[in-house]
Design a protein around this nucleic acid. Structure first.
Length: 492
RNA sequence: GGCGAGUUGGCGGAGUGGUUACGCAGCGGAUUGCAAAUCCGUGUACAGGAGUUCGAUUCUCCUACUCGCCUCCA
């Protein structure tokens, strides 16, 4: 079984051959921890979770290393701290915890170093400042980066504080690295003519980017050869990837919005510092998320977090299902309709597989689909066929492979069936003897009296409360959804 | 403006140089007092134009449209 993946670096679907099958290594850009993860943040997590699971399936749980960082030093975090009056550490700690909880809710496994050591596999940028500084020094020594003194007097107190230490920016020099732009399909000339040059005193070229920048007194800072300051964006991923995965590794993933400049810059830094041809063999990028056909944005009012959905009662499994129903390289549209369909499907699959022992062997078709550039929509359709054929064992294994939490560990999909005759109840929750059974009896009486108009009217009322009323071979039956509130019956 | 992705039946969404996607909805049937659920059955879909070909939804080119990224962003 050969996995094929679309490699952004070559723009082609290629067979995946690991550098070391004993330790397949993947790095995925993680969040900047300053706020709850929004729904779009969940997409790469779920996409690469599927890949992680597939790799573990193919190469073995103990032969895959997956690293996903937390960027806990960033100007957005500083801004959040300033406006809220909270400490940076408070914000990053809390947000990191939220992120772990929310991603667990959508079924994402935690990254790991060969199936273990989860903490190390989720490195915090602030724990790798020394590595970043070392890499920057290396880049300067090799002539790929240069320092530039900043001017003073344009800012407040902090300027004086830094002045004594003579802080300097350390820039990466783009034109020294000829392959710059290959990943994102741009040339340096194009990018420069594309105008918008970034601010940055002492830059030699508008495309050069900052590796290290001095901090004002209210910004977090670390001692460095260039005075007290903090790392620029990009360098943290290069430093952490090198420390944990080596100079060259197998797969680097992230959203396609990161392709430029973030990943382009990572490649430039890492390859120049490490003297390597490639940073990663495969670059994978997922497409963006939309909501009801439009870009999710605060200005459009369609912005929401994973936690918002969970709190609204959309189970994490449903979120996962909706994400998997669109291929990762296509824009995905989150709609209420899709969530509804996903919930219905999962409910029926969970009913079918509850308490069932999963079969030992995964469907070849399913593995085939996933191996073909993570064709999760096809994988789900195969699961549909398996479900229709009634092989609960196989379905369960397939669902596990795609990362759906086992039904035994969940309750949201459960229903309880209440029958009239023996007041037998299929679930473990209360029997609704007093709440529901009298209505079933009344319905039955009306029907036996052939007063169908009244019987139907009663049924409609009952169904408005969420119950499903039917007449089975064992008599009148009510299917009660999980979390049913009997007080809804009071007005009937 | 620069770069890129996409346009498949009512909706969502795979895939293929000639043959069934799959799901939801719809329709017909079984069943039902009627329904629900379930089961069975059912749909002359591939943006437009030109080209390559024995044959294209599938390859090439052009046009139109949609969308995303380029700014913090996954």
């Amino acid at each position: 079984m050969t996995i094929h993946l679309t490699n952004t670096a070559t723009r082609q679907k290629e067979p995946f051959v690991p550098l070391d099958p004993d330790n397949v290594r993947m790095y995925v850009c993680g969040p900047t921890v300053y706020d709850r993860a929004h729904l779009g943040n969940a997409r790469p997590v779920i996409v690469f979770d599927v890949l992680y699971r597939l790799l573990r399936h193919v190469y073995g749980v103990d032969h895959v290393t997956y690293v996903r960082n937390f960027t806990d030093v960033d100007d957005k975090i500083n801004a959040r701290a300033a406006e809220s009056g909270r400490s940076i550490g408070d914000i990053t700690d809390e947000t990191t915890q939220w992120y772990l909880e929310d991603m667990a809710a959508v079924g994402a496994l935690e990254p790991s170093i060969r199936g273990a050591n989860h903490d190390k596999a989720m490195p915090r940028a602030t724990a790798y400042i020394a590595e970043m500084i070392a890499m920057i020094e290396d880049l300067i020594a090799k002539g790929f980066a240069y320092t530039a003194p900043i001017s003073f007097g344009h800012n407040s107190k902090a300027v004086y504080f830094n002045a004594e230490k003579a802080p300097e920016h350390a820039f990466f020099e783009v034109e020294k690295y000829s392959r710059y732009g290959v990943l994102s399909g741009r040339t340096v000339d194009e990018m420069i003519s594309g105008a918008r040059s970034e601010r940055g005193e002492g830059k030699r070229s508008p495309m050069d980017f900052v590796l290290w920048k001095p901090s004002t007194i209210d910004q977090p800072d670390w001692e460095s050869p260039w005075g007290r300051g903090r790392p620029g964006w990009h360098i943290e991923c290069s430093a952490m990837a090198k420390s944990l995965l080596g100079s060259t590794f197998d797969i680097h993933g992230g959203g396609n919005d990161l392709m430029f400049p973030h990943h382009e810059n990572e490649i430039a830094q890492s390859c120049c510092a490490n003297g390597t041809e490639k940073m990663a063999n495969f670059w994978l990028h997922n497409e963006m998320l939309q909501v009801e056909g439009k870009k999710m944005s605060k200005s459009l009012g369609n912005f929401f977090t994973v936690r918002d959905l969970l709190d609204q009662g959309v189970p994490g499994e449903v979120i996962r299902f909706v994400f998997l129903s669109t291929h990762y390289r296509k824009p995905m549209d989150w709609t209420a309709e899709k969530a509804r369909e996903a919930k219905d499907t999962l409910q029926s699959w969970y009913n079918l597989t509850d308490g069932v022992q999963s079969s030992g062997k995964a469907s070849f078709q399913l593995i085939d689909a996933l191996s073909d550039d993570l064709n999760t929509p096809l994988a789900l359709s195969i699961l549909h066929e398996i479900a229709r054929s009634g092989s609960a064992k196989e379905l369960k294994l397939g669902m596990q492979l795609l990362g759906f939490t086992n039904p035994e560990q969940l309750d949201w999909w459960r229903t309880e069936t209440v029958f009239l005759p023996g007041t037998f109840s299929s679930g473990s929750t209360p029997l609704y003897l007093n709440e529901i059974v009298p209505f079933l009896r009344k319905w039955q009486d009306l029907r036996l009296a052939k007063d169908y108009v009244a019987a139907d009217a009663l049924k409609v009322k009952l169904e408005k409360t969420g119950l499903r009323i039917s007449n089975s071979t064992s008599g009148p039956t009510a299917v009660v959804p999980y979390g049913f509130d009997p007080s809804k019956l009071e007005d009937i």
